[in-house]
């Protein structure tokens, strides 16, 4: 019954449309990722889901409760971790945890079981002030505080931003364990690699959901073939590809440039064009699209649609 259903949600700030007609649902006991760059509207959407903002239109149900009408009940059911670290920096780890436990009418002992794995790691520092913790530890503390009242829904706004790679991996391990305890989790992140840790993801850009799928199937969202290209002069290569009318989307990806071709264009024609340019050490291979490629591809398409609309 811990399902989150989001239907046709829109939110404007003056003329800026932060969230445009967004619909998706998070199943009970699912770890759902909301993936998108900064400014995509992820935080606004999350604040609407946590009842902190009112949507202009649309409705959201958490379990059987409506997020606008039953906001008082909703607020007891959710554990929320805002994007900005918002615990009290001048209180110690233990004091923060105790405070949030009392505020939610619980105690550390009561739900120690749930936070044990996480809190265990920061317990050695329990008398240190929260402001003096490292980024990773801060996030673990914030997660502990969000969990202290045993919520049914855990909603995390960019929980791993500003955290080192090892701590990020650890953090997602924790979310996996929480999921196995039956908590439905919605987490937003700008990092594409974290998408692989989710059961399902939604790609968000400019207030719109570009697509929702399992991470393993997300590559199927591109109908076109993807190619990896590299040469000695990557800069010139990228410039050329960006201007080339046969190419749909261009994305610099590590040592390679990933491209997708427009419908009706085949591999041979682009190979010929590249050969004419005389790039040295040119390599060209077909690849399996990764999430980032899909994202760039969908984004480019969205941008073109907008242009066509105007």
């Amino acid at each position: 019954m811990s399902e989150i259903r989001i239907e046709n949600i829109s939110k404007n700030y003056g003329k800026v449309q932060a969230v445009k007609n967004v619909s998706f649902s998070v199943k009970s006991g699912e770890l759902f990722g909301l993936i998108g760059p900064d400014g995509a509207g992820k935080s606004s959407l999350i604040r609407i889901i946590t009842s902190l903002l009112l949507p202009d239109s649309g409705n959201i149900q958490l379990g059987e409760y409506d997020v606008v009408k039953d906001y008082k009940i909703i607020r007891r059911l959710i554990g929320y971790m805002p994007g900005k670290f918002s615990l009290y920096q001048d209180l110690t780890v233990k004091e923060n945890l105790e405070f949030f436990a009392t505020v939610f009418g619980s105690s550390i002992e009561e739900n120690y079981d749930l936070i044990k794995d996480i809190y265990h790691q920061i317990e050695p520092f329990k008398n240190r002030r929260a402001g003096k913790l490292s980024g990773g530890m801060k996030q673990k503390l914030a997660l502990s505080c969000a969990l202290i009242h045993k919520p049914e829904f855990l909603i995390l706004d960019e929980p791993t931003t500003g955290v080192d790679a090892v701590s990020r991996a650890e953090f997602w391990d924790m979310l996996d364990r929480l999921k196995s305890k039956g908590i439905s989790i919605l987490a937003s992140t700008p990092y594409m690699d974290e998408a692989m840790r989710c059961d399902r993801i939604a790609l968000m850009q400019k207030g719109e959901i570009l697509g929702t799928n399992k991470p393993s199937e997300i590559s199927k969202m591109i109908q076109h073939d993807m190619f990896g290209v590299r040469a000695d002069d990557m800069y010139k290569l990228k410039q050329f590809l960006s201007k080339c009318i046969d190419v749909d989307a261009v994305n610099l990806f590590g040592q390679e440039i990933h491209i997708s071709l427009k419908t009706g264009i085949n591999e041979t024609s682009i190979r010929e064009k590249l050969a004419l340019q005389g790039f040295s050490n040119l390599e060209f291979r077909q690849i399996e699209a990764e999430i980032e490629d899909v994202f760039i591809h969908l984004m480019t398409r969205q941008a073109k649609e907008v242009k066509n609309d105007q």
Partner: peptide
């Protein structure tokens, strides 16, 4: 300013 109001708001207080 520090964003903790956000958490206090979503609490049952």
């Amino acid at each position: 300013e520090f964003g903790s109001m956000e958490i206090l708001l979503v609490s049952p207080l």
